[in-house]
């Protein structure tokens, strides 16, 4: 399925939590609240903002991921990124 856009994903420096860059420049844990870039120019702008946050030691290793629409919900296209966004598929009995 073709992607509908791109988002920036990273680990938060202090606790390693997976976070998404939001439109107001904050970093959020909920993929639905992150900023979705719908074209390449917007995506590069998002990435530049993320790299600034990285240089300010807010997050680690930010990068763009492709997002598709799955029945009205945002879903990373790549399997690896889907697991990063949703958490492990095992040990769901022991959520923190």
């Amino acid at each position: 399925m073709d992607p509908t856009g791109q988002m920036v994903l990273a680990n938060r420096l202090a606790d390693g939590q997976v976070v998404f860059l939001a439109t107001d420049g904050s970093w959020v844990e909920d993929i639905a609240r992150g900023a979705l870039a719908r074209d390449a120019v917007a995506a590069q702008r998002l990435l530049a903002d993320a790299q600034l946050a990285e240089s300010r030691n807010v997050v680690v290793e930010p990068y763009l991921i492709d997002i598709r629409d799955a029945a009205g919900r945002r879903q990373p296209v790549a399997f690896r990124e889907a697991i990063r966004a949703a958490g492990p598929t095992v040990r769901t009995d022991l959520e923190g």
């Binding site: 680990n11 939590q17 680690v60 697991i83 990063r84």
Partner: peptide, 17 residues
């Protein structure tokens, strides 16, 4: 920092350290 944390067994993985 990365080589320093690795020397103390701390990795950054998919979801957390």
């Amino acid at each position: 920092f990365k080589p320093l944390r690795l020397m103390n067994g701390l990795y950054l993985q998919l979801h957390a350290y």
